[in-house]
Write a protein that binds this DNA or RNA. Structure first.
Lengths: 235, 235
DNA sequence: AATAGAAAAAGTGTCGACAAAAAATCTGCG
DNA sequence: CGCAGATTTTTTGTCGACACTTTTTCTATT
């Protein structure tokens, strides 16, 4: 095109990144139609690379597709959010277990630093959690990398990252929960520091269970089950 | 086109199925280049739908891609096989846990039927395992469906199915292992029948751990770490 | 006026084409 | 005879076009 330097990154790859951002920003809301011509125009690209990005997000369960009806942003009903957290519990539990035997002292120090930032930020803004979301996300992905397992890492940091990001938006976190999460994070780090694999897995699973319960209680019946690829969405 | 009736299934979807089969059949061996023009010719389709299929297999970690060098079939080094089994242990353990509280009596009966077939087949052909592979795969996917969790099901039956199929080829199973697997399957079904979630998860995890250890011992150093997107593969 | 049917518009799935990059081949020099 | 550089060929990434399906709009009838 006529823009800056691409430097060996393809249009399809950047389309994936941009489309992901559009969805996480809420510009394309759950249930919204993903129009190929419209997005292609908006991104200034043709439909071919855009379709590749759509296929990949479909593979990640972020988009749902029906053969001739196009793609839509997934609607996360409370039931689905709960199911996603079950998967997270399994995978992140194993991540903590594997990390416990492989984490370095330096990495543990970095985790404690992250904890300190969480605490400072929380006390500063009274455990309101708009900005601690990023720190929380960092905390979990950092531990994933300590597992030294490329498939566990890919799962949490790529495959499920967008879906988890969508789940997070459902959660109007209460300060109380933020504090509990902070305490739970501390327990996880302690277990990792002890290289106690069993305890690390258990602490991580309990942490995600607690998040799930809070999420379910919070969501209640905000997001309906519906939007099953109807013909057109009402404006 | 000019062939029979497509009936709402797209060329891209069937391309995904065919390409998956070609890889599982071993026609495209690990490390082999996935040539778009060649496969498009072979399948009698254009490159556009083929590329969508390739992107999806890439998302499933079956293919690896470098921006302008094309895609290659993933090379499963012993280390990678071990990592994949770690993921399986986490996910299938949770599958067993969730299934324990949701499985019906009818489904338990079906599982016992599968076990009977496994036993019959094994005694018939002396626990040689060429044909029991399918029964084993059925066993695991059936339990996945009993979890009633669409994300767990999708993970095992779609996302990781091809990768697990590739792992299986590494394992030159010994009759002894087949018998042990049969016993372990029985323990899993017993735990499910008792609706004992803890036991079901533990039994499944031990089963997959045993498979992993057998696999690692079997593979040894058969598949090298190499083939890191070199320019061309020697014929 | 409301509904059913027909016509028009828009969207998806697929194809062929082209530019740029990579791989293979050819060529000349040591 | 081997190797470095240049040339040809192949392949990838992207685009525009077209057919067929779905959706919307228009029209006519009860």
């Amino acid at each position: 095109m006529l823009d800056e330097l691409d430097d060996s990154t393809t249009v399809a790859d950047s389309a994936l990144a941009r489309l992901t951002q559009v969805i996480l920003d809420g510009e394309l809301k759950p249930g919204a139609k993903v129009s190929e011509p419209e997005l292609a125009r908006r991104f200034g690209i043709s439909r071919a690379p855009l379709r590749e990005a759509i296929r990949r997000l479909e593979e990640r369960s972020v988009l749902t597709r029906a053969p001739r009806l196009g793609a839509r942003v997934v609607v996360l009903s409370p039931a689905k959010v709960e199911q996603i957290f079950i998967v997270r519990e399994a995978v992140e539990g194993m991540i903590a277990r594997e990390a416990a035997t492989r984490i370095t002292d330096s990495e543990i120090a970095q985790l404690r630093e992250n904890l300190a930032r969480q605490k400072a930020r929380s006390e500063e803004i009274g455990f309101s959690t708009f900005l601690t979301r990023e720190l929380d996300s960092d905390f979990h992905t950092f531990i994933a990398r300590c597992s030294r397992n490329e498939f566990l890492i890919k799962f949490l940091c790529e495959d499920y990252a967008t879906l988890i990001g969508l789940c997070r938006k459902h959660l109007r976190q209460v300060p109380e929960r933020a504090y509990r999460a902070f305490v739970e994070h501390g327990r996880i780090v302690d277990a990792l520091a002890d290289r106690d694999a069993d305890m690390a897995e258990l602490a991580m699973r309990r942490h995600i269970q607690a998040s799930r319960q809070m999420m379910v209680a919070s969501v209640q019946e905000s997001g309906g089950e519906g939007v099953r690829h109807r013909r057109r969405l009402p404006k």
